[in-house]
Design a protein around this nucleic acid. Structure first.
Lengths: 200, 200
DNA sequence: AATTAATTTGACCAACTGGTAAAACTAACG
DNA sequence: CGTTAGTTTTACCAGTTGGTCAAATTAATT
């Protein structure tokens, strides 16, 4: 398929995506301009359109990458593992993602807040299925007496909400707690919360 | 001050703010246009600029209103009340806000995600102070043995994250759970979680 | 070195952007 | 009813937007 990629293509594709991520994550799709992405990437505007046929193509490429990166760890949850530790592992992974890739989180947040016009089909398709599978697994664990009886869906939402909060609302967190990295404290709180919620 | 407001002024001011809320909440400040707000409000573009001197003025009016509405319930928490019930009351109030005014929540989310360029001073000022006061109160409750020892700041963040999640990520929630109102389940989950976290 | 393929640029465009100015219209009030 | 204050519209503008095109430049291949 895309075996034939020049070193220049490789470099510029990733330069454009990096710039696009930065800009789109901050301003959303409609609030971002090709000129900004051009300036950020160091390429000229027509040059960008030589590699991506439109502004939307860049945006969609970023979203597609993001979705696969985010769904995989859900699939990696081991039904045979220790329930509490598996859920904790996933939650911590999600939090680490927020710490290391806050812009990806913000890009996604922007898209969802705006009604997910470009990925709604993924949400009601792939995402829905993956979450349904996980929810069923959690329910089984509950019924087997391995964890407390709990609404699996809202448990998942609470993990997503709390982990992404530290990326998406970073400015607010910094304003309240002062500048610095608060992810270690957040992780401790999250672990405490999940253990309390899951253990019988 | 603004005692002298015609009935027409009153009507149009609120029509513009309603339209602006709808548009800004979906597209963020930069992604929104006066033409959209004009179309949504049923007024002409120059007519809008007769009531608000610029696009930014509308946006700022909305944000200002929002911030006072959001900070008040934090101040209303009663230090003399029952700690668990006071925190629960606040959390439920916040969740109800998400249910009734999801667009306000999205407007705020957009602003924060984009780095809060227009309200950073409020965050590091009023918001920070109000939260610090609440955090101190929670700490006192902890030390008095009325609630479990807990990081007050991350407790507050978790309440914000979870309640706002149901407004800001509504599309995702609907995609996963199916269309309908899921706030009752969310409230139950939230109450369960907070009781578990707060009771000794 | 010559030829071809890949890359970059500059000039350009039509649609849209926030905002203005003045004229036309409507409501309020004595 | 006439006058004034308040409101709305029409026409407009300069800057920005996503995107095009052909020419110029550079890299790869023979």
């Amino acid at each position: 398929m895309k075996k034939t990629e020049t070193r220049i293509q490789k470099k510029n594709h990733s330069a454009i995506k990096a710039a696009g991520l930065k800009v789109f994550a901050q301003f959303g799709f409609r609030g971002s301009t090709l000129d900004q992405i051009a300036a950020e990437s160091g390429l000229s505007k027509p040059n960008i359109l030589y590699y991506f046929s439109s502004k939307e193509t860049i945006y969609e490429a970023l979203l597609a990458q993001l979705l696969t990166d985010w769904l995989q760890p859900v699939r990696d949850i081991d039904p045979a593992g220790d329930p509490v530790e598996e859920i904790l592992k996933y939650a911590k992974h999600k939090l680490k993602m927020s710490r290391l890739y806050p812009r990806e989180s913000r890009l996604y947040a922007n898209e969802i807040i705006q009604g997910a016009p470009r990925i709604k089909s993924v949400l009601t398709g792939e995402l829905r299925d993956v979450v349904a599978t996980l929810a069923q697994l959690i329910k089984n664990w509950s019924e087997a007496g391995l964890i407390r009886v709990i609404d699996p869906y809202h448990l998942i939402f609470s993990i997503w909400a709390m982990t992404q909060h530290y990326a998406d609302f970073d400015v607010q967190v910094q304003a309240v707690l002062g500048d610095g990295d608060h992810f270690d404290d957040a992780e401790q709180y999250l672990e405490d919360m999940l253990r309390r919620m899951l253990t019988v």
